[in-house]
Design a protein around this nucleic acid. Structure first.
Lengths: 142, 142
DNA sequence: ATAGATGCAAACTATTTGCATTCAA
DNA sequence: TTGAATGCAAATAGTTTGCATCTAT
C-alpha cells in the first residue's frame, strides 16, 4: 500500500477486488495515490488526460465509483446528494444512515483539538458518525 | 429560539440580521425550525408550497443562502461543491478551509462513542474541522 | 470468447443567475 | 420611495446513463 506501489502491485490489488486492471484505472488510481489534495473527479480527469488524451470524464466517474465500492478509496463525507439544512444552532453532531440518508442529531463530549494544526484556524467542528439506522437494520439484509 | 417562536419573534430575529421579514422567509425558516429531519431545499419547497402555492424553488435556495449567511441556520458539511476523493485508507480526519476548499489530513485521538445511540449501528466516523488555512489567513482579510 | 470497461453523447439533478416585478421598511 | 426580495426562465455544474465498441482475462 502506498504511493510507491508499482504497476504489477496495483494491478493485482485490482484483481483481488474483482476489478480488471485497465490502463485508465491504473492511471486514475495512481494519480489519487500520488496526491494529498483530495481531488475531485474533474481534477483527476484533467491531470490523467495529460498522459492519456483519450481518457473520458465518464470513465473517471465510473472508475471512482468502482474503486469506492471496492473500498480502495474513500469519498469525503459523500453522503448527501443534495445540501441538507439544520436550524438547530447548539453544537451537536450527526448520525448519518448511509443507506436511507436519514440524519439524526447527537451530542458528543468536547473534542480534543488536533495536534498538527500549523497555521490553520479552526472555526467549527462537524462530526459525522456513519452507519445504519434502526429502520434500515430492521429491513432487508445489509 | 426554538420551534415555538411566534411570527413577531421570528420577524425581529430576521431584522436583527438585516434581513427583511417576508412571508416566504418566515415560512421557510419556520418549516426548518419545526422539523428534525435536516431537509433539503427541494423538501422544504414542497412542504412550504402547500400553504404558499406561489412559492418558487429559487426563492427557497436564495432564502437558505441568506439564512446561512446570517448564521440562523447551518448547512450540513456543505463545504465541497463536488465530491472529493482520498486514497488514504488509514483512519484520519480533515481540516477543511471554508474559503479555498483545501482539505488537509489530520489525526485525532480516538473519539468517544455518542451516548444516545439507540438502534443505530456505527460503521465509521468522519471529523471535519472547518476553518481557514494558513494561505487564506495570510491573504485578504477574513 | 466474453464479461466487463471505455468513450461519447444525451439526460438528469441540484443549484445559480439574470431580470422584470413586487413589497417591506 | 427604494433597496431588497420574489418568481420565472434560462444557464450552469456535477454526475449518471445508454449504448456501441473495445479489451483484459
Amino acid at each position: 500500500m502506498g504511493p510507491t506501489a508499482d504497476r504489477a502491485e496495483l494491478a493485482s490489488r485490482f484483481r483481488a477486488h474483482g476489478l480488471k486492471a485497465t490502463p485508465q484505472r491504473l492511471a486514475i488510481y495512481r494519480a489519487l495515490l500520488q496526491t494529498f489534495e483530495h481531488p475531485s473527479a474533474e481534477t483527476l480527469f484533467r491531470r490523467v488526460r495529460r498522459t492519456m488524451p483519450s481518457l473520458s470524464l465518464g470513465t473517471v466517474y465510473k472508475t471512482l465509483d468502482s474503486l469506492e465500492a471496492a473500498q480502495l478509496i474513500t469519498r469525503l463525507s459523500g453522503v448527501e446528494e443534495s445540501a441538507r439544512y439544520d436550524a438547530k444552532l447548539e453544537p451537536h453532531h450527526h448520525l448519518i444512515c448511509t443507506r436511507c440518508k436519514k440524519v439524526i442529531d447527537v451530542t458528543v463530549p468536547d473534542l480534543p483539538a488536533p495536534a498538527q494544526l500549523g497555521a490553520f484556524e479552526i472555526t467549527g467542528v462537524h462530526v459525522q458518525f456513519l452507519g445504519h439506522c434502526g429502520d434500515c437494520l430492521k429491513g432487508e439484509r445489509i
